[in-house]
Design a binder for these strands. Sequence first.
DNA 1: TGGTACATGTAACATGTTACATGATTAG
DNA 2: CTAATCATGTAACATGTTACATGTACCA
Lengths: 188, 188
Amino acid sequence: MSDRPLNATAASLLGFLHEGPLTGWDLVATAQGRIGNFWSLTQSQVYRELTAMAEAGLVAAGERGPRDRRPYAITAAGRAAFASWAEREPGPESIRFPLLLTLAFGRHLPPGRLAAIVGRHRAAHAARLAGYERTRTAIETAGMGDDPYAQATLEFGVGYERAVLAWFDRLPPAIRGAGEWPDGAAAE
Amino acid sequence: MSDRPLNATAASLLGFLHEGPLTGWDLVATAQGRIGNFWSLTQSQVYRELTAMAEAGLVAAGERGPRDRRPYAITAAGRAAFASWAEREPGPESIRFPLLLTLAFGRHLPPGRLAAIVGRHRAAHAARLAGYERTRTAIETAGMGDDPYAQATLEFGVGYERAVLAWFDRLPPAIRGAGEWPDGAAAE
DNA sequence: TGGTACATGTAACATGTTACATGATTAG
DNA sequence: CTAATCATGTAACATGTTACATGTACCA
């Protein structure tokens, strides 16, 4: 039952458990859907955190169900730990963008190769933006603009992907290749 | 002399060493200046990678100089390893944004507290944007728009920070607090 | 009845972070 | 002479990733 502050990944699991008991599997799915956009975690990690938090008394494992499903419930200590995590000043974000590294050392690549890479990544970002915008309009039309917090994080995703696409489109032709990607999914 | 592919951090060190021998200290400073914007590394890590790469024959440690400075030079094997790293498809970027986590669980915080946090982070981003724009105009006015790759990564930083600020400014008042930050450094 | 999705978990390793120990050099 | 900065490095630990092993239940 160590008392060092929670890490953000563990804290977010506790956050989801406020809504009721969930299994490791459920937590992975929930996290990917709700915070996967700006916080990644693996299944392995989730099980590890759950085990550790159970040991620390922050969550309590329930009875194994049908498929060996083992639900975890947050405890009073878990709520307290979560609350004190939430009070802390969030740290600065970190972005790790391998494409930008490759680009930064672009001098060391044949130009066509770089352009091809850049093109593929642009397409991937366009697809992600499209996905975000679909869920966004789905929320609006369904009239369920209920959770302003979820909406704010989604808006971040949209804004981010738009900015990235706009950046791609302003890359000098020498880098991104001649008249590639005839467009169709640009910003705004 | 393991042959598993380089990790991106090690690869970027090799990238810098193409320009000549550098010490661990120099590499930390160089990396922070040139890729620190989208790739973070710590001093400890740099020394560890250098040691490992020296063992693997990718770099060669030189004589210790004045302050025990020990320059590392890239070897032929190092160049080859770097080249094959550069050929690989860069992985997807990962963003870890603690503020968004806190925001996603905003329901669990007193509103004033959240607004205060948000306000401080907005200010930090405004400051970073200002920094980027200073270096950007410095490059332009100095007439040294030489390295298009460095410029492209800088442009990413500018675009990113502007998008983040615009996002802050579109947050619902309930989240960001009433009429805070009278503004002055908004986008465009 | 066979494949897919569900579900849990471990092991091994890679990467990243924090804290500390040690000392040289330089600037004031 | 002394404080700040430069410089290297280690130790301990936290976090993240990949690969694998095992089996269950659902659905076509």
